[in-house]
Design a protein around this nucleic acid. Structure first.
Lengths: 236, 236
DNA sequence: TTCTTCTAATGATTTGAATCATATTATTTA
DNA sequence: TAAATAATATGATTCAAATCATTAGAAGAA
């Protein structure tokens, strides 16, 4: 990867649907590329903390990130994920509020940073870009509201099933075409589904007994996706 | 109210903080004002349904509206409210997706409608307006994610207390300065807090026994706000 | 390697809150 | 104004899932 050129992964990597920076003019790209920060985070390291002030836009070049909010008694709730090509922190940047979630690397990640001033400058002169931000926020909002209903109304089993499907849809499969391409602890899956670690372990065992999934250490293999979808009670 | 002039309540009514259309030029205002639809909805009537196609922007001139999503077994979840001066339906309009929630009048409401084409035309040429939409979406997203954590981690009592505080913050008090300025059924409050009607009734009775609120038919009087806030376990 | 710590797995117990079952008011609307 | 319907209220019961408790296995650190 060359320095000082805008190498937003969504542009250089065509497998990625979110072509966030593709509508920029050359001069705009140049502006953003200049003095762009290039950072590496180890698994478990925190990119930014909930409550802290936003000073730039993060572009996830390579890696996986979870966004969590702190709830009662310090219990975490995973609110979203980011993967290759996603941008992070745009909400706080544009609404000029502190980060409302903590971003933590789920595996070693390579993240670029664009300064607040430059990003705002480009957004303000490029309507297409702000419409793209609107699309992103709309998608996040839709996801959050769906998640809300799920947690409020679904059983633990339905939520665990749905969480596995979300993980598969977000991170895809390994080369074997059936193992979910992410390693999370049972406790993290619990934070996702809004349940306890013990219930998560038991429910995963049940889903395995019922042959919808198979467990191999931290690897989760989806052996019967249609049934898992049915089990999750999701219709969209 | 005169016809054919843009009378967005947030502009004509200065008590309202959301001055959504105040950055428009005169020609832009004129464009939006022309052939603007003017509609009246009775309490209980539906303004738009989840899943339907968006064809305009709704401006709530006067009234109160709830936004609900349908969950498991047809159980409703209230995801948001709108009041005087708020705009509705912008998410679906700008992301070009069907409405993700149903909007229902909580009381008789006066709602104007701006056509999709005209609104999009103005948004695309007015960056300030799109930045304002970003602010709105950001606020909605923050609210939804907070709501998610609450439902996932708080007890019914905490959630009911918090719901009452949200209602008070959204709709304010009646002239007496202590009665929440909204009439909702116990079942609707349950849909808000993500619990059952019976639990809502019991919890309201408990809060009343503990002198944090007083109940007078459908009216809910907040008699000890600091204690109610403490009870809701909310720190922001 | 061994020690320590984190993660996973299971069993036993408790509990918050949903559900079921009826009354008792309020509101509609016929 | 009566009849019908919807909303509120309470008690009894059930149940899903959290919590507590303990053991077993993995993974890092010294």
């Amino acid at each position: 990867m060359k320095k000082n050129t805008i190498e937003i992964p969504s542009c250089s990597n065509c497998g990625n649907s979110k072509e966030f920076f593709c509508n920029l003019s050359e001069s705009e790209k140049q502006l953003l590329s200049d003095k762009k920060g290039d950072n590496f985070y180890k698994k478990g390291q925190v990119i930014f903390y909930e409550g802290n002030h936003a000073n730039g836009l993060y572009c996830l070049y390579d890696g996986k990130v979870k966004l969590t909010k702190l709830g009662k008694d310090g219990k975490e709730q995973i609110v979203r994920f980011s993967k290759n090509g996603d941008i992070l922190g745009y909400r706080s940047l544009l609404s000029d509020e502190p980060y409302h979630a903590t971003a933590t690397a789920l595996e070693d990640s390579h993240i670029c940073m664009i300064s607040k001033e430059k990003f705002l400058q480009v957004v303000e002169q490029n309507t297409k870009l702000s419409l793209q931000v609107i699309q992103l926020l709309s998608k996040d909002l839709k996801g959050a509201e769906q998640h809300l209903i799920d947690v409020a109304q679904k059983t633990v089993k339905e939520r665990i099933a749905e969480s596995l499907i979300l993980l598969k849809n977000t991170f895809g499969y390994l080369a074997d075409g059936k193992t979910i391409n992410i390693n999370m602890t049972r406790s993290e899956i619990a934070d996702m589904a809004g349940t306890s670690t013990e219930s998560t372990i038991r429910t995963l065992a049940t889903l395995s007994d019922e042959n919808m999934i198979a467990l191999d250490g931290k690897n989760i293999i989806i052996s019967d996706l249609p049934n898992l979808i049915r089990c999750s009670n999701t219709y969209d």
